[in-house]
């Protein structure tokens, strides 16, 4: 029983990181039909941003890095969308290969810049220790994800930009003939989605080392969250991230890392047999 409780914060913080990563993916995938394999490298970029900021901000690097990493990763996403993805619009398989290539390039670039060995980011003093079984650093990550979900919800439902983003996601062609500049909305979506991946990268520095391949450990799981949660559905992403994060950490605890992956994949495959379009499907009479 003690082990079950001890494992809980680990599972929840993995869920939180997955959620931050999947939020960006679900919108770029849901709005533009783009499978961005380089999304994982935006996580890595966020983590290295925190690493680099240590020289200047010392142990406060993590909180300082949050907004900086958001902008750094966001700009990387923006450039990728403007220069490459835009030209492959409507060709999902080509985009997948293309962004996979970009992902490998970025990993190599990180190896050249920072070296192949992992580096560490020291957590700030205020995140040392914990509340009983709840370490502060893991609580911080959960709070970050909760804040991210809340911010995205407010953005989508309470701002004009968010409303435009929803409109483009639901009916791109109609949005264009209603006067919405869909290209701008795409840029903004990519910026925000990639920026969130950067924030997730900063969060990951609190629970492990930073290396050029950091993103690859999380990108597949994040895609599973998107698929299981339903495209573009905020509630679905939250529920699926929680389920997958917890399942992952408990399966890993009771078996081992590779068997845990098998369990998670098997669970997602079984789930998709029952709900092929994910937890929350955007439904309407208009689509029938």
């Amino acid at each position: 029983m003690g082990a079950v409780i001890n494992q809980l914060p680990i599972g929840l913080s993995i869920a939180a990181v997955l959620l931050l990563i999947a939020l960006g993916l679900t919108f770029t995938f849901g709005q533009m039909g783009v499978i961005n394999m380089a999304h994982g490298e935006f996580i890595m970029a966020g983590a290295y941003t925190a690493y680099l900021l240590q020289d200047w901000a010392g142990r406060q690097a993590v909180p300082v890095a949050l907004p900086v990493a958001f902008v750094v990763a966001g700009l990387m996403g923006l450039v990728l969308e403007r220069t490459l993805i835009r030209r492959f619009y409507g060709r999902p398989l080509d985009t997948l290969l293309l962004t996979w290539g970009v992902s490998l390039l970025l990993q190599q670039l990180a190896r050249d810049l920072f070296g192949a060995p992992n580096v560490q980011v020291r957590a700030p003093e205020f995140l040392e220790g914990g509340l009983g079984v709840l370490p502060y650093n893991r609580l911080f990550i959960m709070a970050l994800a909760a804040g991210g979900v809340l911010a995205i919800w407010i953005y989508l439902n309470r701002t004009a930009q968010g409303r435009r983003m929803q409109a483009v996601m639901q009916n791109r062609q109609l949005a264009a003939v209603m006067g919405i500049d869909t290209g701008r909305v795409d840029m903004r979506t990519f910026f925000i989605g990639s920026g969130l991946a950067g924030v997730a990268g900063v969060a990951l520095t609190l629970v492990g080392p930073v290396g050029p391949a950091l993103g690859t450990y999380y990108i597949v799981d994040a895609f599973l969250v998107v698929v299981a949660g339903g495209l573009g559905a905020l509630r679905g992403a939250v529920a699926a991230a929680l389920a997958l994060g917890l399942l992952n950490s408990y399966a890993e605890f009771w078996t081992d890392a590779s068997l845990a992956k098998v369990v998670v994949f098997a669970a997602v495959i079984a789930f998709l047999q029952v709900r092929p379009r994910g937890l929350f499907v955007l439904r309407s009479r208009a689509l029938t």
């Binding site: 929803q166 009916n171 949005a175 209603m178």
Partner: peptide
Amino acid sequence: GYVPQGHETFPQLSVMGNLLVTLEAS
């Protein structure tokens, strides 16, 4: 101003949301 074939809407937005999203882009 265009009204495409097949009474198209943004199905997940409210009626007001449909009107506002167009207003904000005008």
